[in-house]
Design a protein around this nucleic acid. Sequence first.
DNA 1: TCACAAGGATTGTTGAACAATACTTCAATA
DNA 2: TATTGAAGTATTGTTCAACAATCCTTGTGA
Lengths: 233, 233
Amino acid sequence: MTATGDWIDDLPDAGEDLERSSTAERVADLLRGHIINGALAPGARLSEERLGRKFRVSRNTLREAFRLLGHERLLVHEFNRGVFVAKPGAEDVVDMFRMRRALELAAVRSGPQAPAEAVGTVGAAVEQGEAARACGDWEGIGTANMAYHRAIGGLLGSPRVDETMRQLLAELRLAFHVMAAPRDFYAPYLDRNRAIYELLAAGSFDTAAEELAGYFDIAENQLVRAFTVPPRA
Amino acid sequence: MTATGDWIDDLPDAGEDLERSSTAERVADLLRGHIINGALAPGARLSEERLGRKFRVSRNTLREAFRLLGHERLLVHEFNRGVFVAKPGAEDVVDMFRMRRALELAAVRSGPQAPAEAVGTVGAAVEQGEAARACGDWEGIGTANMAYHRAIGGLLGSPRVDETMRQLLAELRLAFHVMAAPRDFYAPYLDRNRAIYELLAAGSFDTAAEELAGYFDIAENQLVRAFTVPPRA
DNA sequence: TCACAAGGATTGTTGAACAATACTTCAATA
DNA sequence: TATTGAAGTATTGTTCAACAATCCTTGTGA
């Protein structure tokens, strides 16, 4: 017989690829993508009948998908009026940053206990962003920035925090589409991202936290200003 | 004419009392109550047909309610098998405490910027717990402890953190029902709760954070032990 | 004991139907 | 003109019934 049967424990987890089958979840994924990349403008109304025809799913299934995205704050559900793509305001941005500060700063400060490859994931996101900049791929820079901060949150090694960060950053990205010129918003922060990563890799977690806090202050300020001066009515 | 029409802006917001009407949400509220007070045991299966008959709602409406509670991690949805009351394990408790530490400690340290009556809310929860202890109302002590930590999270003044804390503590409470003797679990912590509150009221936020961190260590340890030594099979 | 097939039970999804509510239009009135 | 009121229409809220897909149980046979 071959050594042991342990080989079955060694192959990678299927990870949701098996259980993932519900139509409602697939529709939710599809919609989430369209919302995040801006294909569905904030405030847009989602008609049950028309979307149902478009996706070839029944109204009931569609409504289940709506509930999922509503819980992620990407859709708002107004009773007897329908569901709309969420339209975050300045106060929402402020609130999201409150939560980001709490979670990401705690994550960075918990660096010494972070799981093994967690810091490496941050570095990968940094390079992903720099590659996008080299191509002039502004959309890609935004995506990389999301991955970067998700990786920061990942330092806590907490599935619940990971999930929360995922939602939070998706909602934040939605907020960008309300802004005037989100194009090269993130580009100036790429160098700062790398600097923080270097500090993490060097084990200077407290200094990294201070740097990150500085980033929050600047980015929040810039974002809120972009909201307060509305993108021409 | 009477001075201005501004009086209409001055009356208090109706605040969700008007929009709150969906049957699915009411069913979700009902189920949530039954789950956190232990009427529905962890691991129990929720049959769509039987629950639908019981509550006099259709399967579709019930399924919408399930989705809501699933997103709060109170129910787990297994494809083609049904929904079950979540059954948190030791690793879930550890993870919940990771997130609690991040949020509540950040909240306490943000004390100086806390909204006006936020500290008072913490004090109210302390007294609510002491009153419950005086009555020997163990269930009430647990409820008061939940309110206490929600109030701690409320120091951040963030709606998103509030919502997250609400879910987190509901899930944590569910975890208690897996324990052997959850009866007087919280009683020993009442004095500590008051001590932390006094520190908050005195403005010693950093000291309060240290005390709170100590509470987390002890409570988590006690909880995890209660899980590792299972409540007789 | 194990494998496997048949059967029943439950969920996944659809489509249609009706009630309840919101939105639109337009006429009537002050 | 501005506002009110009253249809009429469109959309959502909810239910019901049906069928496909999947799981679980049971019993049979080797």
